[in-house]
Amino acid sequence: MEIKPGKKRLNIRYAKFAIIIIFIVSVSGLLASGFRSNTSHEKAWVVEVNNKDSIASVDAFMKVYQVLKSPRCMNCHPAGDIPLQGDDSHLHTMSPIRGKDGKGVYAMKCSNCHQPTNSAGLNTPPGNPKWGLPPDDMKMIFEGKSPRELALQIMDYKRNGHKNKAQLLEHARDTLVKAGWNMGAGRKPPPLSYKEFVAAWDKWINNGGVAPK
């Protein structure tokens, strides 16, 4: 499944999108840039976008962004190595740390408390078999990221967990992502419904994965 990063290979794989964007589109105050990373990171893939698609893509991302920045997603994509907790995104009590694989360390592994399914009652740990943070070598931080930063990060093969387009699209269907809408009593779901989120995610990516300016 894993695809090695490399423009050439990606270009071949996604040939039909494969034109490097060399201009910045500006429409009615909205500045959007396509997969034009200003860093040296390699891109997940490159696509051609037109004006209309860019606007649609950015629009969709702004919806996606609300979900990604909601506690249900951001809490496990923290800026530090300790996850956040609760609707107010406070630092996780007992300060569990990420660990190499994102699954915690020693007696403080995520799955010691986070069960395969939600635990009953208020204030109990939400559950999922994959519960954890992104790994230490791929932290995929959401906390504190602007829409543009976050969009660029997600589109950056080197910073998105080495996901290509198909894998990115697939990620919205991941059971752990989906669990964000069912995290047990006392936890507010993300601002969009899961269905709306998937639609926005797909739209964002399929229309070029454009990052807001």
């Binding site: 007696a107 592994k109 010691n112 408390c113 204030n123 109990t124």
Partner: peptide, 22 residues
């Protein structure tokens, strides 16, 4: 609610909190 650790047991060697482990 898995906050205090008084209920820790080993499940296949891992320090699970038995109060929330079905």
């Amino acid at each position: 609610v898995a906050q205090c650790g008084a209920c820790v047991v080993h499940l296949n060697g891992e320090a699970v909190r038995s109060c929330v482990t079905k």
